[in-house]
């Protein structure tokens, strides 16, 4: 795995919403994700609450445990400390906001236990 974050988190990256509108990554708001998911035929937004943040054996990584969706499925993800998540009503947040800002120029809040992140799931398949 690469130690680099995906390019679309870099400040100034151009993001296309589902209705075709273009926005910079740092200008995205909660409504942009919600509205984009509404018009998506496959994807819907779930609420994923941060339950735990543990250190990882991998340098500069953390293991984040989320409680996902209405069924509160427990899901762990291992990410770099600077990996940004979008918190409802708050915006970009990472475990190490200083590092995120240093590497990506993206302003971040500190991701904490109890924060509710935007995640994606599939709309029910029939």
């Amino acid at each position: 795995p690469s130690s680099a974050l995906p390019p679309y988190f870099m400040k100034g990256s151009i993001i296309q919403l589902a209705d075709g509108e273009l926005k910079r990554v740092e200008d995205l708001r909660t409504e942009d994700f919600l509205q984009s998911a509404e018009v998506s035929t496959e994807l819907k937004i779930d609420s994923s609450t941060v339950e735990r943040i543990d250190s990882s054996r991998t340098p500069d990584a953390v293991i984040i445990q989320f409680s996902v969706g209405e069924h509160k499925a427990q899901v762990c993800v291992e990410v770099l400390v600077e990996y940004p998540f979008f918190v409802f009503g708050q915006g970009w947040s990472s475990c190490c906001p200083d590092r995120t800002t240093q590497l990506l120029a993206l302003s971040c809040a500190k991701l904490s236990v109890g924060d509710v992140c935007i995640s994606l799931t599939l709309k029910s398949l029939r």
């Binding site: 679309y8 993001i15 296309q16 998506s40 779930d46 969706g69």
Partner: peptide
């Protein structure tokens, strides 16, 4: 200039079962 789709930016976590 590359343009990225909105859904790249948020993680895909476990699909929920609908009842």
């Amino acid at each position: 200039v590359p343009v990225f789709p909105w859904h790249s930016l948020v993680p895909f976590l476990a699909p929920t079962q609908s009842d």
